[in-house]
Amino acid sequence: MSTDPLLRIRDLRVSYPAAGGMAEVVHGVDLDLAPGERVALVGESGSGKSVTARAVLRLDPDARLSGGIELEGVDLLGLPQRRMREIRGGRVGLVFQDPLASLNPVMTIGRQVMQPLVIRGVSRRVARRRAIELLERLGVRDAEHRVDDYPHQFSGGMRQRVVIAIAVIAEPALLIADEPTTALDVRVQARVLELLHELAAERGMSILLITHDLGIVAGFAERAVVMRHGRAVETGTVDQIYNAPRHDYTRALLAAVPRIGGDVTRPLAVIGAAGNAPEEEES
């Protein structure tokens, strides 16, 4: 690629304290993300996807990181904590694996969405305005009033939009979405991915989408990195990975995808989906 990467990860190794020393769980991962690019990080459970994502923002104080992580040319591993805090939520937004648990139960939705702006010195009035606009853009109806509600008054799908709003309100250059849709039913999943896609396109924002489901990658990402046991085993465009997987493990992952070809972002008919309320009627 000719453009300078937004994010450049080289030989990233992550170890955690374990009985009798440090246990390495990520063993040298390389990853590049161009500005505006959408890349999927795919792999089975425990392959080190979340650990890699958290390492980018240096979120675990007891994790030992080595290798290189550069964001917009700045070496993040050498950055003092204060600068790191500006990057978190400012240049890089993160949506958690379980977004439904990542809202403060006793703070109004509005205050939580405004917070990344408020802590960066934006006035409350302006921040509130922007929070409402963004929530509306993300399909939260009547956002003007709903910002004064608390998380438990929101449905899963709506809380997911709130979490995304929090992650992107400060207009980060990169959004890391760690399985943002696994807690949602299939219809809502597809809609949320669509919204992320639109948002990224509108803002020229890059997305690193973490998932174990190759099925949702095709309609979403341009490139994919396949991880297994803490290593990146295959990197390529989504086309390459779908049509000419080089690694056995990738082939196995593909075999687990229920339908190849066709519109992979279209919702599946889910067995036993009776409990899944139609998404647009939720509150």
Binding site: R85, G89, L94, S102, N104, P105, Q115, P116, I119
Partner: peptide, 14 residues
Amino acid sequence: DAEYVDAARVMGVP
């Protein structure tokens, strides 16, 4: 240790 506190920290909350 609640996830929402971690989430706030991730957003750069001091």
